[in-house]
Amino acid sequence: MAPKALILRTAGTNCDAETDMAFQLAGAETALVHIQHLISDKVNLADYQILAIPGGFSYGDDIAAGILLAVEMKHKLTDALHRFVEDGKLIIGICNGFQVLVRTGLLPGNGASEMAQRATLAMNTSAKFECRWVDLETQESPCVFTTGVKARVYLPVAHAEGRFTAPAKVLSELEANNQVVFRYAENGYPNNPNGSDSDIAGICDATGKIFGLMPHPERFLTKWNHPRWTRNPTNTQENSSEEGDGLVIFKNAVHYAESNLL
């Protein structure tokens, strides 16, 4: 049986189709589920092993990015979410989903029971939306999504509120627990597109099972998504793997769920 991934949707979610595609290509059975269906118990979160919160502008990012969806999840899905985390299941939040996870307190996290916000994703230092590809350095971390990921990965970002920032204490905890999963590889704008503290692009919780990142691995599922694929030497184009570097993140999740959660 394939692991089941729930791709959460709400008003303003807009990276759901490609996130769904990523999990399908990785071998999961997927469902796009509106949060209303979880709240009304039409769909049971417990039936799934992976929860993905895709990118977008949930509820228009009114007040601040991801905050309304975070509040809704915390207060209307409290028990289901707690159980999901306690069961050691996997959660990934991409871009707006990362913003949501940080605002629920699930990231950086401090054990399953605490749902208090300890960091934030603030307005980019450039003060505008940035759509560009960036080099990421993969860090040593317990994150199950990034096992075997290359030391350097190239992925696109597209956001206005992606500057990861937290009190010094939280930052040093993150470093001490190896919770930083991805860093923007070169210091400074534009490769660090938002001015994040310590060039942080993605973090996980202490268990490595909850993962949030600003870059979009679901936008790099085939080699043709790479912005410079036409520069590859012609004679290798047909022969090279057609898989994009983002897919492995979803495959890792599916493999982990297959081995540990079924």
Partner: peptide
């Protein structure tokens, strides 16, 4: 760069 040109994953 202010326009998201990568969303929907097909670019």
């Amino acid at each position: 760069r202010q326009y998201d040109h990568g969303v929907q994953g097909g670019m």
